[in-house]
Design a protein around this nucleic acid. Structure first.
Length: 565
RNA sequence: UGGGGAAUGGUGUAAUCGGUAGCACGACUGACUCUGGAUCAGUUAGUUGGGGUUCAAGUCCCUGUUCCCCAGCCA
């Protein structure tokens, strides 16, 4: 509304909505809908559509967006999916008010419209089976042939259709088809099936019906009933728009405008519901909400926030070009969000014992630590310091390379919010493995500053051994090890064997004994982590790594390795 | 010539009537730093090819090329 914000450029859909608003095409209304089929869980691609549809409604005064379940295929749809979809849309931050609709609620009206089409000579009952129907349809380059049942009388069609509805025929025996043009260059217009026989119980309408309308004969009418102004869908429905328009015009009812945009593709990710279902059914992942899944529930369990996902959807834009967004952008969006809100804590994933030789045994000091340097209001907390500590084993190297700044023999580093320590000795087991470090500390550097002003190259995190909480931490990598898992015969061959690393025996600072779920933390220098909503227990916390911090050291290592090779 | 769409740096996306090709991510420099984080400053790099119109073309015209979607009684 305000003019001072230099109007961000609108995408082509919003531009169109704005034009329609200006010309009064729909009487100044803006009414969209998000129409999922409840046959799977929502994923990040749906989030794009949700943000688009609900976003457009929200941005325009009086704008509305309905949640409508496109539930015309009882063989694939389940109540569980309905429930998860509602939860996910709500979690993403959108509200459909009391406008929760189901295409199945329109079945009576849609049936009447089918009868109206028959009466108008625009539809007929066809006895061809599925295979014959395909043969009669022709090919991409050759026209189809008329069905031998195309010219049945209105009376006969009415009677047969009624018998279909009454359950007198088995599955697949007959269909109701629109009478359009078997030679039409758009195959969707070659007498498309309007109704098929499906003796299946529907998750909402139960056994009331044994014939179900097809998507094309349902979606437009549903939009029409709800008074949708802009029916936004993905590119693959572009070929269906002529049919969408044809049905509504033939029925003589209100016609919304269908607009298509490109669906989201993400690197290292599969997005089709079919493939996600396969992963779940074959137990290649832990379920729809496995933190490696691109599902909304998976991202939530992983520690992504609705804010981050919405920011992502804004950044990727909306267009008709079939593009693939870099996963890095999604990660950037979580880091950006979590950086300003996540409380910092110290956690040691792979502990290495450190004994401070000149520190009094039995002494415990409470040191003050900042909760979030990005947020002054987050305050501070006390963390215990004592003679025996754990540090990250990656933070010590006996023979460090040039650019390694962390602890090494005879080198001094700072323990965050603690003291400067110097490594004096390395203790190894019989196998030569480093099991313990002996260090000295400088009492003058309490809190982390040296009165003499001397500097250290590095600050590392630590946890007091006696006070530490044991935890399991799950480290995730991409589910697939190639950018485009859809390439090739079987996407499963591209699964990343290292997509999950379970680390047990992690040591956390005391305040993490009872973490809140869905409250993201930053484990300093490591990344963002959230308690697992299913497996975490008080005093036995389980954390999921949402995303690592940007890691310059890892980058240097990779470069050095590359140069060496 | 089956029909329908689409092409802008490495990636995603802007550019009003034809008028300085912009933003973001990434990458790379440097500054700063009690997180090798964050932040700040800067650099890099683009209009699918070929013609044409024009003072001026990503935008208009012609002509190629490439990619995506469609032959479910799925959505």
């Amino acid at each position: 509304m305000s003019n001072n914000e230099s109007a961000a450029p609108l995408d082509f859909i919003r531009t169109r909505v704005a034009e329609d608003l200006k010309t009064g095409k729909y009487g100044g209304r803006v009414h969209t809908r998000f129409p999922p089929e409840p046959n799977g869980y929502l994923h990040i691609g749906h989030a794009k559509s949700i943000c688009l549809n609900f976003g457009i409604a929200r941005e325009n005064e009086g704008g509305l967006c309905n949640l409508r379940f496109d539930d015309t295929n009882p063989t694939k749809e389940e109540q569980e999916y309905v429930d998860s979809i509602k939860q996910d849309v709500r979690w993403l931050g959108f509200d459909w008010g009391d406008r929760e609709y189901y295409a199945s609620d329109y079945f009576d009206q849609i049936y009447k419209w089918a009868v109206q089409m028959i009466e108008g000579g625009k539809a007929y009952v066809c006895d061809l089976d599925a295979e014959q129907t395909r043969e009669y349809r022709g090919t991409l380059k050759e026209p189809g042939k008329n069905s031998p049942y195309r010219d049945r009388s209105v009376e006969e069609n009415l009677e047969l259709f009624e018998k279909m509805r009454a359950g007198e025929f088995p599955n697949g025996a007959r269909t109701l088809r629109a009478k359009i043009d078997m030679a039409h260059p758009n195959l969707n217009m070659r007498d498309p099936v309007m109704y098929r026989i499906l003796h299946a119980s529907h998750h909402r309408s139960g056994d009331k019906w044994c014939i179900y309308p097809m998507y094309d004969f349902t979606h437009g009418q549903s939009d029409s009933i709800e008074g949708i102004t802009h029916s936004i869908c993905t590119l693959e429905f572009e070929n269906h728009r002529p049919l969408y328009d044809w049905y509504l015009e033939t029925l003589g009812i209100y016609r919304p405008q269908q607009i298509e945009f490109a669906r989201l593709n993400l690197t290292y990710t599969v997005m089709s519901k079919r493939k996600l279902l396969t992963l779940v059914q074959e137990k290649l992942v832990d379920g729809w909400d496995d933190p490696r899944m691109p599902t909304i529930s998976g991202l939530r369990r992983r520690g992504y926030t609705p804010e981050a996902i919405r920011a992502f959807c804004e950044r990727i834009g909306v267009a008709k070009f079939n593009s693939t967004v870099d996963l890095g952008l999604l990660e950037f969006c979580v880091r950006e969000d979590l950086n300003r809100r996540a409380p910092r804590v110290m956690a040691v994933l792979k502990p290495l014992k450190v004994v401070i030789e000149n520190y009094p045994a039995g002494q415990v000091e409470e040191l003050e630590a900042v909760n979030n340097p990005e947020d002054p209001n987050a305050g501070t907390r006390k963390i215990p310091f004592s003679k025996v500590l754990y540090i990250e084993s990656d933070d010590f190297m006996e023979d460090p390379p040039k650019k390694y700044f962390r602890l090494a023999p005879d080198r001094e580093v700072r323990l965050r919010y603690g003291y400067f320590i110097t490594c004096t000795d390395v203790v190894k087991d019989a196998g030569g493995e480093i099991v313990e470090l002996r260090c000295t500390y400088d009492p003058e550097t309490r809190g982390g500053n040296a009165p003499d002003g001397r500097k250290v190259k590095s600050t590392i995190h630590w946890v007091s051994a006696d006070h530490a909480v044991d935890a399991e931490v799950r480290l995730y990598e991409t589910l697939f090890c190639v950018e485009d898992p859809d390439e090739g015969d079987d996407f499963r061959t591209h699964l990343n064997p290292q997509s999950l690393e379970v680390v047990s025996g992690c040591k956390l600072e005391p305040c993490l004994a009872h973490p809140q779920t869905e409250l993201p933390y930053q484990f300093e220098r490591l990344g963002y982590f959230v308690a697992d909503s299913k497996d975490s227990r008080p005093k036995k916390p389980v954390f999921n790594r949402t995303v690592t911090l940007r890691d310059t050291w890892a980058k240097i290592q990779k470069q050095e390795a590359g140069n060496a090779g």
